[in-house]
Amino acid sequence: MAVLDIRDVSKTFGSVHAVQRFNLTVADGELVCLLGPSGSGKSTLLRMIGGFETASGGQITIDGEHVTRIPPEKRPTGMVFQSHALWTHMNVFRNLAFGLKLRRLPRDEIRRRVEAVLDQVGLAGYGQRMTHQLSGGQQQRVALARSLVLEPKILLLDEPFASLDQHLRERLREEVRDLQQRLGITTLFVTHGQDEALALADRIVVMRDGRTEQIDPPDMVYRAPATPFVAGFIGSMNLIDGAVQNGAFHHAGFTLAVPVADGPAILAVRPEALDIVQASAAGAAHVHRVTDFGAHAIVDIELGDGVRLKSQVPDARLWKAGMAIDLQPRAFAVYRDDVAIHRADRA
């Protein structure tokens, strides 16, 4: 059982607030992704949990034990860095054995555990290789094995696949997920790639400017983004700035009935939820461009004031540039003051 609890944790560098009063509890065996653009504080948060930065305020506990002021070598955490950070003057075996030797385990025990972990990450028999003789993916697997061999309570992954190519990244992502579930290890994973977060996580924490925007399972983050920022950051999203008047959202000739009070509002519609129909008369918008992807097509729409939207349609051949159209959002959300005040889903 390993539960990670983060309470009101802050970090300031000079006058910069990197992390502001952050709260999160990661359950035993759970994999949580910290997702956000660069500078959102996600890496700083991870480094505070690993002990490489000291929190300016707040508390971090692992299984109820306070670790906030404990140096990294005394924490039950294992970190995998983006740049794998393998020790190039040691071979693979010695990289993995280093931490075990520091724990003064018997030689046989060290050999057994190193070989078992190498086998788990699919690198059995690679012990005598030097790190530079390995491919990028293999190096990252060794880095993962180096953390796992010590059986940490909490596994911390800091954008571990960022330097790998797309294909390899997807494969390693699946391997990490399998391994994490098999070992049941509590894991915190930092990434700026939404695909990675959506594919891996039990829950996603979306961060922005050192604050939490939303903490939810992937489907919730995608289907019910808590703020316009999350809506725009995860997946493709049309965000239309407008105003609500007498029960209808207005923006440059486009109107949509919404049951909310009058005032400024942001309408958020995903391209796959924005249906378009050929307008009988002038129409609220016109087709700007059609891009055919075979299985589906993306229609670029231009509103009366030049604002562009995207709609995903099944058949590209029905639409031509310049065509007058009307918009019929099937599912949408209305935001005001950074909060969703109305959601609709006419499936």
Partner: peptide, 12 residues
């Protein structure tokens, strides 16, 4: 990062 990962596995 090499030094940090050594701290991470328990080195003073």
């Amino acid at each position: 990062r090499m030094e940090e990962s050594a701290r991470d596995v328990g080195a003073s």
